[in-house]
């Protein structure tokens, strides 16, 4: 019985809930153990770290586990079958949404791209998928939820999907097929049969456990680093310090944030805690979101990988359109809020 994965799961859930609901008293108690004034700079920084780090890690574990299970239904092969033979428009919405739930690693961006092209998925639809997949992922959404609350997380989800859908539509309308590398253009289109692997429920649970080990095992260090930097900013940077150069009145800060963000490569895990701290010190939400999106959505390593299938010209077009979309998001936000 103790070896049964379902039984283990129930124990894990109980432990999880127990820890989560007692986080605030527990973290305050831990802080009080240190010989530090609670109201001092160091006390503030410590309280932030000791409460937020376990909270975010707990949330992430739960979400990654559930996503690991959901992912077993959305293999890239099934996603391709769903998208093949559709035309621009509704298919972009579908592609962007599938980008959220299909497991994606930028290291397989090329085989995925080719697989889509081969199956006759239109280029614009493929791009919608490729923009959404890295940008709107469970790690980013969980951190946003944990550190900013559900409204900002939802906003990020909706706007991220919007950038992916519109970006893909525009790229599709531009008729850029001729700017694919020659060998990609020469690939024969073919029909794919798709047989779903027969997985039992405990196989799927197992997949959830594996992705927790994989993902949380990899990102926890970035989260701790990000939260440490964030904690430092919380404790030591003066209030409203960021307002002058990342505030609403500084319109140029949005493009600047995007320009700095595009070549930067960090997982959402590391960047979001820092952004949260900047926000607390007077940075505008639109500017902060634009920065975050450009760091997460566009990264140099992924672009270098995509260079195998896209000509430089197509890469530049791709980056400019996604960056403009993000820019727009930043401006609209600063204007509305």
């Amino acid at each position: 019985m103790f070896k049964d994965i379902r039984f283990q799961l129930i124990i894990a859930v109980l432990l999880w809930v127990g820890t989560y609901v007692s986080l605030i008293p527990l973290s305050e108690w831990v802080v009080s153990l240190f010989p530090v004034e609670r109201e001092s700079h160091l006390g503030e920084a410590m309280a932030f770290f000791i409460y937020d780090a376990p909270k975010v890690l707990l949330l992430l574990t739960a979400v990654v586990f559930v996503m690991g299970i959901i992912n077993t239904w959305f293999t890239p092969e099934r996603t391709r079958t769903l998208l093949a033979g559709r035309s621009l428009g509704l298919a972009n919405i579908l592609a962007a949404s599938l980008g959220v739930v299909t497991p994606f690693c930028s290291c397989s961006a090329v085989p995925l791209f080719i697989g889509f092209v081969q199956a006759g998925v239109p280029l614009g639809v493929t791009f919608s998928f490729l923009i959404a997949a890295p940008m709107v992922n469970e790690i980013a959404l969980t951190l946003l939820f944990g550190l900013f609350g559900w409204k900002v997380a939802l906003l990020y989800l909706v706007l991220g999907l919007l950038v992916a859908i519109l970006g893909g539509l525009v790229l599709g309308k531009l008729g850029l097929e001729k700017y694919l590398e020659q060998w990609v253009q020469d690939i024969e289109k073919k029909q794919h049969s798709f047989d779903a692997e027969q997985l039992t429920f405990s196989d799927r649970l197992q997949a959830g456990v594996v992705s927790v080990k994989d993902v949380v095992g990899k990102v926890w260090i970035y989260i701790l680093l990000g939260i440490s930097v964030g904690a430092f900013i919380h404790g030591f940077v003066p209030e409203n310090f960021m307002a002058s150069f990342m505030g609403k009145s500084a319109w140029w800060s949005v493009p600047l944030a995007v320009i700095i963000g595009v070549p930067m490569y960090s997982s959402a895990a590391g960047i979001i805690p820092v952004v949260q701290a900047l926000l607390a010190k007077g940075a505008a939400l639109g500017t902060a979101l634009a920065f975050m999106m450009s760091v997460v959505a566009l990264s140099l390593p992924e672009l270098i990988i995509l260079r195998k299938v896209l000509t430089l010209r197509l890469i530049i077009t791709f980056v400019s359109i996604v960056a403009s979309g993000i820019l727009l998001v930043g401006f609209i936000f600063n204007l509305v809020l």
């Binding site: 092969e77 085989p111 195998k308």
Partner: peptide
């Protein structure tokens, strides 16, 4: 080699 990989119809490595 990407072309050889695609011959096996594998989309995620």
């Amino acid at each position: 080699d990407m072309q050889d990989i695609m011959a096996y119809d594998v989309m995620s490595t």
